[in-house]
Design a protein around this nucleic acid. Structure first.
Lengths: 119, 119
DNA sequence: CTACTTGTACTACTGTCGTAGTACAATCCG
DNA sequence: CGGATTGTACTACGACAGTAGTACAAGTAG
């Protein structure tokens, strides 16, 4: 998986799980680039993409911050739409492998049991 | 989606749904290449990959056929393993988007209802 | 205003993927 | 055997994705 995708996921995940909170500042593009031994442009593209998605806000000369926009109802809807699309792809791929929606449900449910066991 | 992937999916799907039956012969690599306006090598690679997966059998000078191997218990297990891997990727991606397994289950179940409504 | 920090635009290189072209090898069938 | 049909190996080319380098623009702070 390419660097930019890994980073995007990591940031999204950090926000989703609350490890990064609304208003909090992220590292500078250059700083993060140094930390990860990556080009600054790579980080910048990730920040830009996440800003387009509305979950980051960036101010020149200041820095990049976690936006509050992803808590609005409009964004929630958008987010749910993404989930549906993801499920679409998932179901399609599974059916190409000869699996039904029920097969997926079974597999997911057994996974849920394992999770709750650990909680 | 690249040609070879589309073709692979189409064949897998045809077999899974019974439109292609065990023992049945598939078109010649060249013939199918002509039909799809594609290079013969592209078709050949698909056939080869599907043979490695054990769902096709090819005999030089004769043709390519649907194998019976995918009905054996061993292959069933393998198949189930693939399902698990697919679900793994799915869950991982969803969690990176901030969705839980329960969210996925809800979405899938509502989808199942729609399906059964049409049956 | 000036120095500094921030993000951004542009360019170019590199590796990889997908596809096609051509020539080869194995098998069948008369 | 010999021609025809099948799949296969090898090569090469085009396109694209990913990343890095460098130079620029916008904003802040003293």
């Amino acid at each position: 998986m390419p660097l930019y995708a890994q980073l995007t996921r990591a940031i999204r995940f950090a926000i989703a799980t609350g490890r990064l909170r609304v208003g909090e500042q992220l590292p500078t593009v250059r700083q993060l680039a140094v930390d990860l031994r990556v080009n600054a442009n790579t980080v910048a593209k990730v920040y830009a993409e996440l800003e387009r998605s509305g979950i980051l806000e960036t101010r020149r000369g200041v820095g990049t911050f976690v936006s509050a926009h992803h808590l609005t109802p409009g964004h929630r809807d958008e987010h749910e739409k993404h989930l549906k699309e993801l499920v679409d792809r998932f179901v399609e791929e599974a059916s190409a492998m000869g699996f039904s929606v029920d097969d997926l449900l079974d597999q997911l449910q057994s996974r849920r049991k394992k999770e709750t066991k650990n909680v």
